[in-house]
Amino acid sequence: MQPKTFGHQIRRSAYFAHLAKRRIYSSIIILVFTMLIISGFIVANDRNAGGFWDGINQLGDFPYEVLSEAGEKFLELPSHLLTYLPALLETIHIAGAATLVGALSGLFLSLLSTRGLAYWPWAIPIFRRMMDIMRAIPEIVIALVLIFVLGGGPIPAMIAIAFHTAGALGKQFSEVNENVDTKPIDGLLSVGAKWFQRMWLGVVPQVSPNYLSYGLMRFEINIRASAILGFVGAGGIGYELRNTMSWGKGKYDEAAAIFILLFLTIVLVDQLSSLVRSRLIGTTG
């Protein structure tokens, strides 16, 4: 009886010592983290043109101006919505075409960089690094350089987004490919199918629901990206928004119309894509 209680007590004290150590560690991590956040905000606040507390009082001013001007010219709003619809469509087309081109390139990149599927197995690391770099380049970098060469418009934005998308989707696709069932590929190989046929008939049917789901998610991200690139000069609704904003007062009703269009589009695409995705892979989200 005695030794058993003794051993139990040892285990008990060891457990509490372990627990205390873990608690100290996590407290230290939380403390450092909190201090990083607080000092980070202080640094950001110091380097900002306007301070936080001044700003928070003015936060409502701009939306109020926009809304009141839109309210005054309420009857013109429908016509503004119509005026900016083509620009909105351009933004959507930029995102759509970029997603499509990016997904097709990503498909090949992912097949070329998955073990067991790659055409040149020795080149897998090369394609992986290539995708890493493509993913790492922010769209704005390519867009601004291309605007200098090609002039403003939708094409620089499209190429920039497609480039990044190819890298991002390529990585997600290759993660899907890793879990692919190799039996159909072996079957195709045994009847003499070429690499392209093995991929097209053996792999793509297995992975297409997941691919489509990732593609839709990327489309949603790309609409936001194409709107924001427009604001730095690459066409579409973002460009119109910048023009009305730099006009300032007097065109705020038009800015409001653009805000509404952009908001509705993003919410709509968001809802549609999550609906389709939950159908495709049977999860919510």
Binding site: F41, V43, A44, N45, R47, N48, A49, G50, G51, F52, D54, G55, I56, Q58, L59, D61, F62, P63, L241, M245
Partner: peptide, 13 residues
């Protein structure tokens, strides 16, 4: 856009 009207340019915004 909304925040840079209130807080001005900078990292906080």
């Amino acid at each position: 856009i909304i925040l840079s009207r209130a807080f001005g340019p900078g990292p906080l915004t």
